[in-house]
Design a protein around this nucleic acid. Structure first.
Lengths: 103, 103
DNA sequence: TTAATATGCAACCATTTGGTTGCATGTCAA
DNA sequence: TTGACATGCAACCAAATGGTTGCATATTAA
């Protein structure tokens, strides 16, 4: 899970996920065309996304297709974020009460 | 939003959020007691969490209380993660179809 | 008032990160 | 088969990151 959070931390990598979300299965070169940096830099970002299991690749001849894997993101949403979300209103009202008590 | 993602990327900072989730309003020293690093390091992490608006502080005499603010996490869950989650099954079945077509 | 406590600020350091350039390899098409 | 195209690998570099130590400041309590 750590790898997923770290992968999501970089705006370039989030943009790559956005690009794949817009059109799945894009080749490395296709993704590079939309990024203002060298192909090698994009390759590194994609490797990090792949390591975090956020992107799956499929070698097709001399091309490499990239597919978005939304499962880890979903897991984060459910396992980690959900736990804060659940108590959201409680925490807010608690904070409000504390602040008012202290004026 | 970038600040929130970057803040969440570090495991120490996620642990700090967990600690605050377990007991809200903890002082800096209380949080330090649970972290295996110097107070100054913890201070830096808390500053990053505060900058991302994930933690709100309240000066109380010579102490500083820290409160969890779950709103930004909730926004991420709704605005960014939701968009992938929504198409989760679609994307998976699409990937499956492509893979099968290519055997 | 003075000592202990709680926090703030700044310089410094090692490692990681995000990017580059240069070259190698593998595959398609003429 | 040969040239063009798509990707892989490695060395290198600047900047950001995560941590440290040392000292300063502010508040509480004896």
């Amino acid at each position: 899970m750590d790898a997923v959070f770290r992968a999501l931390a970089d705006p370039t990598r989030r943009q790559l996920l956005d690009n794949l979300h817009a059109r799945n299965g894009q080749t490395l070169n296709a993704l590079c065309a939309q990024m203002d940096m060298t192909r090698q830099a994009v390759t590194k970002h994609l490797a990090i996304l792949e390591e975090a299991n956020l992107v799956t690749t499929l070698r097709k001849g001399r091309e490499k297709q990239h597919y978005l894997n939304p499962v880890p993101i979903n897991e984060i949403a459910e396992r980690w974020i959900g736990k804060f979300e659940r108590h959201r209103l409680d925490a807010l009202s608690d904070l409000k009460k504390r602040l008012e008590r202290e004026d």
